[in-house]
Amino acid sequence: MDRSIYIVDTGVANMSSIEAGFRRLGVPVVRGVDPGVVATATAVVLPGVGSFAAGIAAIDRNGLRASIIARFDEGRPILAICLGLQMLCRGSAEAPGVAGLGVIDAAIEAMPPAAVRPQMGWNRIEASGGPMLDSGDAYFANGFALRSAPADWKASWSEDEGDFIAGLERGRTVACQFHPEISGRFGAGILARWTESAFEAEVVRCV
C-alpha cells in the first residue's frame, strides 16, 4: 500500500512549505500532475495560491478537472488548501465566467470590506464540530472567501470585519481557506488528523 501523500503540482502553489509540513510529521510526499494518480491515490492535496483564473487554468491545462471531481464523488481523501478550497467551488467573484470544479455548491465572494486587505496574517477559527478542524489560530493569505456555508458540509468560521468560512469538512474531504502547513502546531494537528484518516480509509478498502 502506498503510504505517501500526492500533492497536485500545477505550478501555482507554495509546494515546498506543504511538503515540509508533511515531512515534519514523518509522512512522505510525492508531487505531480498525473490525472490517473490524482483520481485514485490514497491521499491527495490540492494546494494553490494566486488568482482563481490562473489556478483553474492550470487544473484544466493538466487535464485534472475530471480526476478531482471523480475523486470527490468516490469519497477519496482530499485536502484542499487556500485557492484549492476556492477552486472546489462553483466559481468566484474574482473571475466571473470561469467555472470552478463545482464539488462545493457555493460561490466565492470578496472578503468583507476592511481597512486592511488582502487578509495576510493570523486569524482565530471557531471549530466546525467535525473531527478534522478544531478551534485555534491559523495563517491566512486571501482577498476572497466563502461567506455562507454550503449545505452538507461542516463549516468553521473566522471573522475580519465580517464573517467568512475558514474551513469545510465532509467525510475525508477537508478544505482550508487558511494554510495549515504554516500554521504552527494548530496546522500540524490538522495535517496529522487528515493523514491518519486517509490511511485508515485505505486499510478498510484493502480488507
Binding site: G21, Y139, E181, I182, R185, G187
Partner: peptide, 12 residues
C-alpha cells in the same frame, strides 16, 4: 532557505 523551511512551521 530550504534548511530553514524544514524547521519553521510559520510563514517565512
Amino acid at each position: 532557505v530550504r534548511r530553514i523551511r524544514e524547521v519553521v512551521d510559520v510563514p517565512v
